[in-house]
């Protein structure tokens, strides 16, 4: 029997282990989770999880250094692809972080900083449990109630050119796109690996998803 291979992209940063543990927690015998920076494994995998924390520039540099830019871009075109936090932001064309850096340009749009002027009571980073309002149906929302809370930690958010890619929104001073979907890609600003039962349900849904 062929096992389904799910590759967790390792670019040397972030809480990779939390992501792989959460995915493993929701797997069955037919699915194998591997943490990898090997372009060949990424090419061979049936599905991709791209986690991430930290800064956009360091992420792009690490992808460059490990030769993963092309394999990740290719995978994002054809396989079930789950982007998490930085793994959402690097899918965009350009990030304003670190004085500006070009990203993978898979989803046209920008990554911009929160503007909290007028909200002196709000803190930055946006850190903690906030609600995701599901603005469109998606197979990965299965079993996750509307407006469920997920754990966030970030200071920048994505602004896609095509608003129809937005399937979830969150409010912190302003309402921003917190989940994008494009074909086989589901990408979320929050950390499902740290979002208790709803986050685990999202991993379960992803592992069962064929990308359509």
């Amino acid at each position: 029997m062929n096992q389904k291979l799910v590759a967790v992209i390792d670019y040397g940063m972030g809480n990779l282990r939390s992501v792989s543990k959460a995915a493993e927690h929701m797997t069955n015998d037919e699915t194998q989770i591997v943490v990898t920076h090997d372009p060949q494994v990424i090419a061979d995998a049936d599905a991709i999880i791209f986690p991430g924390q930290g800064a956009a520039k360091a992420c792009m540099q690490a992808l460059q250094d490990t030769g993963m830019i092309h394999p990740v871009q290719q995978a994002a075109k054809e396989k079930p692809f789950l982007g998490i936090c930085m793994g959402l932001q690097v899918l965009m064309s350009h990030s304003d972080e670190n004085q500006g850096i070009d990203c993978l340009d898979i989803i046209p749009g920008k990554v911009v900083q929160f503007d909290l002027s007028g909200h002196p009571e709000l803190k930055m980073p946006h850190m903690g449990w906030n609600q995701i309002h599901q603005t469109q149906d998606h197979p990965l929302w299965h079993g996750i109630p509307q407006d469920s809370r997920f754990y966030f930690v970030h200071s920048y958010y994505v602004a896609p050119q095509d608003k129809s890619t937005v399937i979830g929104e969150t409010t912190h001073g302003q309402t921003f796109p917190s989940v994008l979907s494009a074909h086989n890609i589901f990408a979320i600003q929050a950390h499902p690996e740290k979002s208790a039962e709803h986050g685990l349900q999202l991993f379960k849904n992803f592992l069962e998803w064929n990308g359509h």
């Binding site: 946006h126 449990w129 906030n130 409010t171």
Partner: peptide, 8 residues
């Protein structure tokens, strides 16, 4: 709808 205060 906003960020929840946390208990740790």
């Amino acid at each position: 709808m906003s960020l929840a205060k946390r208990i740790i």
